[in-house]
């Protein structure tokens, strides 16, 4: 629904990809992955706090982290790191006038690399989890 005048509350529009192109998808995914990494950082600090409680707490924690649910979560972090990091490089390059006319292709390549990384880490992590 139109009749939109510029104001800060329109920030939700940032996450609306309808009728928008690849560049906007990159914009959205960069923000989501950024927020995701901040959330991960907070969780990480909470985890470190738990570890201060001694070796038994540590072993319990590691056992939990080998469950599929948490492995999947970690894989999301892997994806976020690759996507956010590589997209950051893409933005740096285009800001210097390099590759701006190929920004769509660059983004697709980034997503493919991130996808490959997730698959690789998934294989490694599930293998370890299986091995015990």
């Amino acid at each position: 629904m139109s009749e939109q005048t510029p104001k800060a509350v329109n920030w939700m529009k940032w996450f609306d990809p309808r009728s928008r192109g690849v560049g906007m998808w990159a914009f959205i995914i960069n923000r989501l992955s950024g927020l995701g990494l901040v959330l991960y950082l907070v969780l990480h600090l909470i985890m470190l706090g738990k570890l201060a409680k001694g070796p038994q707490a540590y072993d319990q924690f590691i056992a939990m982290m080998k469950t599929p649910f948490w492995i999947a979560g970690e894989l999301l972090v892997v994806a976020a790191v690759f996507i956010h990091g590589l997209n950051g490089v893409r933005i740096i390059l285009t800001s210097f006038g390099i590759g701006g006319d190929r920004q769509k292709q660059l983004f697709l390549i980034i997503m493919l690399v991130a996808g490959a990384a997730v698959i690789f880490f998934a294989w490694k992590m599930f293998a370890h989890a299986g091995g015990g």
Binding site: R20, G21, V22, G23, M24, A26, F27, I91, T94, S95, Q103, K104
Partner: peptide, 9 residues
């Protein structure tokens, strides 16, 4: 500018 590229599109 945050490089959304919608303007060029």
């Amino acid at each position: 500018c945050h490089s959304a590229y919608e303007c060029t599109r």
